[in-house]
Amino acid sequence: MTENGSKIKKNEWPLWEVFYQPKDGKPFEHAGSVHAPDAEMALQNARDTYARRNEGINIWVVPADKIVASTPEDRGPFFDPANDKIYRHPQFYSVPRASKKRK
């Protein structure tokens, strides 16, 4: 915070996380992040940084501070229990060959 109450920290623009969709119907994937003063510029910066070599057809930009993330401490309670519950994985079914080929 500066003296006049401006929310701009130092001279740094806010951070935005960038997601792109490689093709129609495909899920968005995380590409990286950019700095930008606002949403429109974030979108343009994301395009220039991550999507100018045909990587995708759509972009999302999300203010990084709006993302709620799990913490390293969550790793135990969140993810460890999955390791000893193999029945949660569907590898006990035999998959017909014909449907395996289909992608």
């Binding site: 950019v34 910066n45 220039d48």
Partner: peptide, 11 residues
Amino acid sequence: PELEEDLALAN
């Protein structure tokens, strides 16, 4: 003025 704008101008 910023890395991102540097890229944009170069683009």
